[in-house]
């Protein structure tokens, strides 16, 4: 199901779509869904110091049916993979996926020859919109990932980019 193509609507409302995209991008509802270490950093991002609420994405919902962004925070094991896929399928369209951390990107440190237990990357299961590297990524990185996703949804960046240096 994850790979099926969504047909574009027959009647297009360009300005309305833009407005909807703006609304969606500025109030992303992520799913409360932690797999491993990265989930702790995800919690830290939502908690007092980093305060994801500043960017409008703090409404963590336990039910996939109320979410529009799934943050895959941790290693997906082969035993867990069907459950993760089900969660993705249960989310209503439009939906986005952030692969947080090296495990969700490629299997991270747990890939070795002859490994028998993990899925090597969330994109093996469903399409991923934003990848955040790190083991685990810092909360700032997750915030940047969410801003990146906002940019993908609306086509323009709301916040200035932080210059490195």
């Amino acid at each position: 199901m994850g790979t099926q193509n969504i047909q574009p609507a027959i009647v297009q409302f360009a300005q309305l779509d833009k407005l909807l995209a703006l609304g969606r991008a500025n109030s992303l509802w992520p799913m409360t869904f932690g797999l491993a270490c990265c989930a702790i950093e995800m919690m830290a991002t939502g908690a007092s110091r980093f305060d994801l609420a500043r960017f409008g994405a703090e409404v963590f919902r336990p039910s996939p049916r109320q979410c529009d962004v799934m943050i895959v925070a941790g290693t997906i094991s082969k035993k867990m993979a069907p459950a993760v896929e089900t969660l993705y399928d249960q989310m209503p369209e439009p939906k986005w996926v952030i692969a947080m951390g090296n495990c969700a990107i490629s299997g991270g440190p747990f890939v070795f020859e002859g490994q028998y237990g993990i899925v090597e990357g969330a994109d093996k299961l469903f399409p991923v919109d934003v990848f955040i590297p790190g083991c685990p990524p810092r909360p700032e990185a997750l915030i940047e990932g969410i801003l990146e996703l906002e940019e993908k949804v609306t086509g323009s960046r709301r916040w200035p980019r932080v210059e490195v240096g």
Partner: peptide, 17 residues
């Protein structure tokens, strides 16, 4: 710890996945 239908024993020295 392994999936319900697992029929392999990974820590045997002659295990190959």
């Amino acid at each position: 710890l392994l999936p319900e239908d697992a029929d392999f024993h990974p820590l045997l020295k002659d295990f190959r996945s």
